[in-house]
Design a protein around this nucleic acid. Structure first.
Length: 359
DNA sequence: AAGTCGGGGAC
DNA sequence: GTCCCAGACTT
């Protein structure tokens, strides 16, 4: 057993996290769900989503039989919505090809949509006690500091080095618990001790051999992502009122907010009246312009101009992917966070707005 | 190898 | 404001 593994395992028993909702189970489905939700998402953010999701869909068959729209609504606000779509697709594959039982072979697990090398390894370890290396954000930070690996971990060359260290550092013990405790220890150390800012090196079980600690370079490792100024975009969101209902449109399955319900979006230079006539077969009357709402994505910044309008002709067109819905009900659907913010803002300002219809 | 895909926590 | 988080997928 390598030096680092023994110290991590000993540390974990005393100082690790032992009461997270997905610990204490070996149900592959529960483990799998947690690993998907935790991709690029912090533990504290995931917990309420995870518990609610498991109440609605306690097993793979129930998930595979659900409408995708229901799954997305439970995912609403969590982000990276392709995770929910892949989860659903994988559940259907497991029911169809594996009789609803989560596969046990590494190749089969990693072939499922949404499960890459690290997630497959984590499931193997926590569900089956397999000996397998993970490499998430926490582990990249711990190893890049401990072994003094320079370079942005997003680069393939750096990532390959880190994977190598992750494999080499695995414990050689043959008990299932040994591999589970070790893997949990790596993540717990990264989350609680070897943090991005001001790591608690005086409490770290690895400090005696840590290159970054020895050279006082913990603030330089791992190498930060090269900075890029995000492009700025602007757009208009329409809050179209028909009586007390608003219009939502379903977005395409691919692209930003794929498959989610959204307020109608038009370009800044586009004529709202003409657009509504063409797409919604209705005349509109402007009521109010809400202040712009800023929203930052991974790769661009979006400035949303929300415009409240009332429709003034009643040619009701039932169109695919469009629904008129009460604002309160809209909040239960699969909507992205800025849309949720806007609808809440509208609900709270409803009275004052409707008293100014002379605009 | 680089770009796409959310939202929020922590600073 | 910035950076990053139990990454995977597409091009």
């Amino acid at each position: 057993m390598s030096n680092i593994a023994a110290r991590l395992i000993n540390w974990q028993e005393q100082h690790g996290r032992h009461h997270l909702p997905w610990q204490g189970t070996h149900d592959p489905y529960a483990i799998w769900l947690s690993e998907i939700m935790l991709q690029q998402t912090q533990v504290g953010t995931v917990i309420p989503y995870y518990q609610r999701f498991l109440r609605y869909f306690p097993d793979i068959p129930s998930l595979s039989q659900a409408p995708l729209d229901d799954i997305l609504s439970l995912w609403s606000g969590l982000g990276y919505y392709s995770r929910a779509r892949h989860l659903y697709q994988a559940a259907c594959i497991i029911v169809r090809d594996y009789h609803g039982t989560f596969p046990k072979e590494r190749e089969l697990i990693q072939q499922l949509p949404g499960i890459g090398r690290s997630t497959a390894a984590a499931i193997m370890v926590f569900a089956y006690g397999h000996r397998s290396a993970i490499l998430d954000g926490n582990v990249k930070r711990v190893f890049s500091r401990y072994f003094g690996i320079d370079g942005y971990p997003g680069k393939k060359k750096v990532q390959d080095q880190l994977w190598l260290k992750a494999e080499e550092s695995l414990p050689n013990g043959n008990s299932k618990k040994c591999h589970q405790v070790y893997t949990q220890a790596l993540m717990d150390l990264g989350a609680t001790i070897c943090t991005r800012h001001r790591p608690q090196c005086h409490d770290c079980p690895l400090r005696s051999d840590c290159v970054a600690f020895k050279e006082k370079r913990t603030d330089q490792l791992p190498t930060a992502k090269p900075r890029v100024s995000l492009p700025k975009k602007e757009t208009i969101f329409l809050i179209l009122l028909k009586q007390k209902k608003i219009l939502l449109e379903k977005r395409p399955d691919t692209g930003i907010w794929g498959g989610l319900w959204c307020l109608p979006e038009i370009h800044l230079e586009e004529d709202i009246g003409a657009y509504c006539t063409q797409h919604f077969k209705t005349e509109v009357r402007p009521l109010f312009n809400f202040p712009p709402l800023n929203h930052t994505f991974t790769h661009f910044k979006l400035r949303i101009h929300p415009r409240l309008l009332r429709i003034t002709s009643q040619i009701d067109t039932q169109q695919e992917g469009k629904i008129w819905i009460e604002p309160d009900e809209a909040l239960d659907k699969a909507i992205p966070t800025p849309v949720r913010k806007l609808i809440k803002q509208y609900v709270h300002s409803d009275n004052s707005i409707n008293n100014t219809e002379s605009v």
